[in-house]
């Protein structure tokens, strides 16, 4: 257990860096978590992160990677809905890393 520190406020996360209270998320925090993951947030990153947050809002789960790929393909097209594109954005696993940045729990089915 540790915490991200944003503007002097501690925001606790679990041993893998996922924030424990989804209500603590903010765009500023996302940038901070991303930096921790060596990711500089671009519009393309935000597109995926926002997509994940919307998916979670609707279904109350973080999707598994193959579900994420399929869903992104459907809403953003096949140039973005593929593993290669998503791994370029999130080299350590789109589902895991993007979910962490999006302030969501680890994807269900992800071990």
């Amino acid at each position: 257990m540790g915490a991200y520190v944003l503007n002097g406020v501690e925001i606790p996360h679990d041993e893998e860096g996922y924030i424990t209270d989804l209500g603590n998320w903010s765009k500023e925090l996302a940038v901070l978590i991303a930096k921790d993951e060596n990711i500089e947030m671009t519009d393309e990153h935000w597109e995926v992160v926002n997509f994940l947050r919307e998916y979670y809002e609707e279904y109350q789960i973080a999707p598994a990677i193959r579900v994420l790929v399929k869903a992104i393909k459907k809403s953003l097209g096949k140039e973005k809905g593929n593993n290669k594109y998503l791994y370029e954005l999130f080299p350590y696993g789109p589902a895991k890393q993007a979910c962490k940045i999006a302030g969501l729990p680890k994807p269900t089915g992800c071990v």
Binding site: E58, Y59, Q60, I61, P63, A64, K70
Partner: peptide, 14 residues
């Protein structure tokens, strides 16, 4: 407690 009923609607994606 968490309302997990919306998650049944994601089953089609799976």
């Amino acid at each position: 407690v968490k309302n997990f009923s919306p998650t049944y609607k994601a089953l089609g994606d799976y």
